[in-house]
Design a protein around this nucleic acid. Structure first.
Lengths: 125, 125
DNA sequence: CTCATAATACGATTTATTTCGTAAGCAATT
DNA sequence: AATTGCTTACGAAATAAATCGTATTATGAG
């Protein structure tokens, strides 16, 4: 079985940035985060150092300014956390989660089509 | 707008029990939780007292043994937290979450049918 | 009434998470 | 060489969460 990935709230925010940028410096991550929250630069730095120790990110420190990169995939993290949520909130029923998420509008008809396709696919298994 | 419900991990476990039983004593909640985790009775008690102060649960303390009940609905809590997860992990796309959850097998054909129905319904809107 | 049992209250400790201040290094500029 | 401006390292404080121990009180059995 794979190692349990358990990023905290703040670590998740940082991972988000790394996933979207692929590689980034602390400064870049911090700038991005600053748009939404306001904590100091060293806070972001410290968090990323801790994440490095935990193995959540890797980094190239051959230059003075280190370059960070996520070391856990977005997909496995999503899978992990969605699973946890299904257990914690939907009594283990992924179906219930799907229903809830579907019910929350915000889906274009193109998206609904896409879901439909996946669904058909599953039904013919 | 509605108040931001933000139960912690442990509080969520307790809410789960309360939602399923409707009403319950600390003892009952604790017994149920004990099946999965092992912390002391007073820990559960303390948590429920804190939840009471926060307004997450209500209680009838007219008798020595207090009767607790959730004071936030399962639905609104789910909505709240799923929304948060969609933002934190799926860049705001609820559709992506649905796809991820669907991909994770664990759905009976009856469940798939149910989802299908909901989907058709949404498409005809 | 007295004792045992089970419940609540509550302070305190432990552990996890977030935040920041300060020191020290390096590089470009003056 | 000194100054300035970033950068990392790192300890430590602040905050939040979970856990537990002990005191107290109510209630029913004897």
């Amino acid at each position: 079985m794979s190692k349990p990935i358990k990023p905290t709230e703040s670590e998740l925010e940082i991972l988000q940035v790394l996933w979207s940028k692929n590689k980034a410096t602390v400064r870049e991550v911090h700038e991005t985060l600053s748009e939404h929250k306001d904590s100091g630069y060293t806070t972001t730095l410290k968090l990323m150092q801790i994440m490095f120790e935990k193995g959540l990110v890797k980094r190239d420190d051959s230059n003075k300014t280190h370059i960070y990169q996520a070391n856990v995939s977005k997909e496995s993290t999503q899978k992990q956390l969605v699973g946890k949520m299904v257990n914690a909130l939907f009594g283990g029923s992924a179906t219930e989660l799907v229903m809830q998420a579907l019910g929350n509008n915000k889906h274009s008809s193109a998206e609904l089509e896409e879901i439909q396709k996946l669904l058909d696919n599953l039904k013919n298994k």
